[in-house]
Amino acid sequence: MSESAIGLRLHTPEGRAFLFDPGALCLELLPTGGPGPLARYEVLDTPAGLLDWVAASRLAPPGLRLPPVEERHLAAVRELRDALHGLGVARAYGRPPAAADLAVLNAAAARPPLTVRLTDEGRRAWAPGASVAGLLSTIARDAIDLFTGPYATAGRIRECGAHDCYLLFVDTSRPGRRRWCAMERCGNRNKVRAHRSRAQAEGEA
């Protein structure tokens, strides 16, 4: 994660790094893998993968410590992530949400979330007793806030415009015309393709 900007430091299949800011904690979970073509990005199949994501996410305050993570915890995180992907895609394309995805989201949100406390030094810190269930509740409640928020955010959930990119984000740009997950990734690829297409057309002319 960049120290100067909010977002996740992701890598292309070729190994090139780029900064991706989806605009919400719940959407930050989606690049960790998923169903279908997203399976090749899976990192939540090991405890280390989950802990690395927690450390890189926008969870505040940072430094969340979880108890030993088991396979059942990882399965629950993956289940919520896949439900969030389904709900995000449905919202991006104006489709009704799937009942199964809603059930997973609401079940996670029904549990107690992570809590913070004020330290002797006057700083925010995570209260003792953090758990994976509390983490999932915090993520699920963030998603509910996003999906039920003002149109300026809830109505601007987008999927990257590249044909082979499935990243979802909140378009927080003032004109509301963000098309790409990141300019340094899919935006630049589109520019290169457009330049090559123009050059080929000019050559044929």
Rank of each mutant, 00 (worst) to 15 (best):
G94E: 12
M1R: 14
T32R: 09
R78L: 01
W180L: 11
L38T: 00
G63E: 13
E204D: 07
Q200H: 10
V89A: 06
S4V: 11
D82R: 06
L44D: 04
T119H: 08
E28F: 06
A108Y: 02
G94T: 09
E14V: 05
C26M: 01
E79S: 11
R81C: 00
R179W: 04
A110W: 08
L167R: 03
H195G: 00
A17H: 10
E204N: 08
D171R: 10
A92H: 05
A17C: 05
F20D: 05
V43M: 07
G149E: 04
A48V: 14
E202G: 06
A205K: 06
A108D: 00
L168D: 00
H73G: 10
R117K: 11
G88L: 00
T172R: 15
E42M: 03
D164H: 14
E28V: 05
R174N: 15
S173I: 11
L59P: 12
A55R: 15
V54P: 09
D145L: 09
G23K: 04
Q200W: 08
A107F: 01
R78M: 03
A201M: 08
E42C: 03
A24Q: 13
A5C: 09
P175H: 11
P62I: 08
R65E: 15
S173F: 12
G86I: 01
R123Q: 15
P37D: 05
R185I: 00
A56K: 10
A194C: 01
R16Q: 12
L105A: 06
P97G: 15
G33H: 00
L64R: 12
S137E: 01
P67L: 14
L25T: 09
E184S: 15
T12G: 03
P31L: 04
L87I: 10
H195K: 06
P175E: 12
P68I: 13
P175L: 14
L25R: 07
P68H: 14
R174L: 12
A5E: 15
A24L: 07
L10H: 09
V170K: 03
L50V: 14
A76F: 02
R40E: 07
C160W: 02
P22R: 01
D21P: 07
R16E: 14
R124S: 14
H11N: 07
L51K: 11
R158G: 08
A60H: 15
A194S: 13
P35S: 05
G34S: 05
A110F: 03
S131Q: 09
C181W: 05
R72F: 00
F169S: 01
A99P: 02
R189P: 00
R58Y: 06
D142M: 04
G155H: 07
H85F: 09
R178A: 03
P67A: 13
R65I: 08
A205W: 00
H11Y: 12
L135M: 06
V69D: 07
D45T: 13
D145Q: 12
G86D: 05
H195M: 08
G94N: 12
A109I: 04
A100E: 14
L135S: 07
P13K: 09
D45Y: 02
L87S: 02
G129N: 10
A99L: 13
D101K: 03
P67V: 15
E121W: 04
R193V: 07
G33F: 01
T148I: 00
A60K: 13
V77Q: 03
F20V: 02
A83P: 04
A99D: 11
G36A: 13
E70N: 05
L167V: 04
D21R: 09
S57K: 11
G15T: 10
L27S: 03
P128H: 12
